[in-house]
Design a protein around this nucleic acid. Sequence first.
DNA 1: GTTGAGCGTT
Length: 175
Amino acid sequence: PMSNRRRHTGSRANPDPNTCLGVFGLSLYTTERDLKEVFSRYGPLAGVNVVYDQRTGRSRGFAFIYYEHIDDAKEAMERANGMELDGRRIRVDYSITKRPHTPTPGIYMGRPTHNGGGSSSSGGRRRESNYDRGYDRYDRYDEYDYRYSRRRSPSPYYSRYRSRSRSRSYSPRRY
DNA sequence: GTTGAGCGTT
């Protein structure tokens, strides 16, 4: 029947309209404050996240903009896409992923059971950040996350394999 | 002020 026919949901190339925008091609020097200034022109923001490299702490050159209203997101996406920011042409699109990660999904969110907190439930205090409202239904782990996170191959090119086969063959070095 | 394809777990 139709019910399990999968609705044509956004692809990577064509994400569905959404209150979260991904901004790519940023200058490394564009800050969240800069983005806030620019993107709040189209409507109230719920948040801005520049993605930083965990090691170097530098921007990875892309960010996510959260709008309160999807209409503002639409407008921002149309008007800000291709605009120049800090000398770089930025690409703005609806985000594929909705949030960095779900903190401990599917675990008990109530009070700690040790200490006789007693009441088993309902006290489950949920986090109330800007990003938490209304995004829970997007919490499925998309395929993308896995694809990008599990790629850890021990780069064959610098292994002893190569150096061995290298050293066995004499080097023709012509001058 | 790295030159830049890309969708995030501070």
